[in-house]
Amino acid sequence: MLGIYDNEMKLEFVSKSSNEAFARISVAAFASQLDPSIDELADIKTAVSEAVTNCIIHGYENTIGIVKVECKLKSNWIEIQVSDNGKGIEDIELAKRPLYTTKANLERSGMGFTIMESFMDELKIESIPNMGTKVTMKKYITPLDDKNNENMSIANQSKQKEGI
């Protein structure tokens, strides 16, 4: 399994919505090896939550199935793959459209893919009807050195403003 990546992990759990918190917290804990900022970590948690929710309520439609989450780390990015063997998506472009939902009666907002797209740097959706769906997301993490430099420059700017 190990090879071109710095680290990898795989989770499998039953498609119960009570596992959503488990999934996003586990991925966040794994991603913290890259020293992400609080905002970056919150983006990852939100995107994972959306992807896992999709597997549970759309892929398996609240029946019992297995949701898989695989993460790969490499120096400054994390790739997260969330997949199910559920009913699949007929029209991916339509599913990605903001506010489009097949479950409006369940008060779904139709924002899942839009949120994944805007919170992560890359998003790829593969699906075969009646076979399953695989969502692959990638996020680049600003290296700690750059973050420190950013903080330094902000500190310097405020010092200059105060005339120190």
Binding site: K45, T46, S49, E50, L106, G112
Partner: peptide, 12 residues
């Protein structure tokens, strides 16, 4: 923490 499920709930 909140995800899009919250948006649906608020609209409801």
């Amino acid at each position: 923490f909140m995800d899009s499920a919250g948006i649906g709930m608020l609209l409801g």
